[in-house]
Amino acid sequence: MLLKTLEILSEGTVPLLIAGILLVAHWRGVNVFESFIQGAQEGFTTAVRIIPQLVAMFVAIDLLRLSGALDLVTKLLNPLLSLGGVPPDILPLVLTRPLSGSAAFGLTVDLINTHGPDSFIGRLASTMQGSTDTTFYILAVYFGAVGIKKPRHALFAGLMGDLAGFLASLYICQLAFGP
């Protein structure tokens, strides 16, 4: 019921928003086409301006993944985590999630297919994938777009949010679905 309402809400928002903004703006005497072109021009330059940041970030993260450096960290951390009751198969996803959205989604699909979508690991991976966003990507795009070079504590806060999301996912899935 709640899910259905949310679905209708997210499907209906975009058309209503577009029509509403255009109508109100026209009624208030805005030349909507001119305004749109000006804004879209700004959007275009923004999208192009973030390319260098994305290249830097994606190359570095692909290097970490393809070189086996991430696998190595996984192997080193595994004995520690199994003490805390963390299933070892989930660790690559935990480490990849803040770095690359598409790679993490690939790992989630892989875990779902290997262990089954209704297995504990399948449900845990699904929850973890959805509970946070790709911190490094967001940082590169949002700060790159306005030319921020010193992010101060933003990265630290984002990564702590990721960590909290993973721990919460683990705890809640154990409560809700049992190991």
Binding site: I21, R28, V30, S35, F36, G39, A40, E42, G43, F44
Partner: peptide, 14 residues
Amino acid sequence: IAFWMGLMRIAEDA
């Protein structure tokens, strides 16, 4: 990005 920033500019100007 171009589309939504275009729409946002309309909303801003209004």
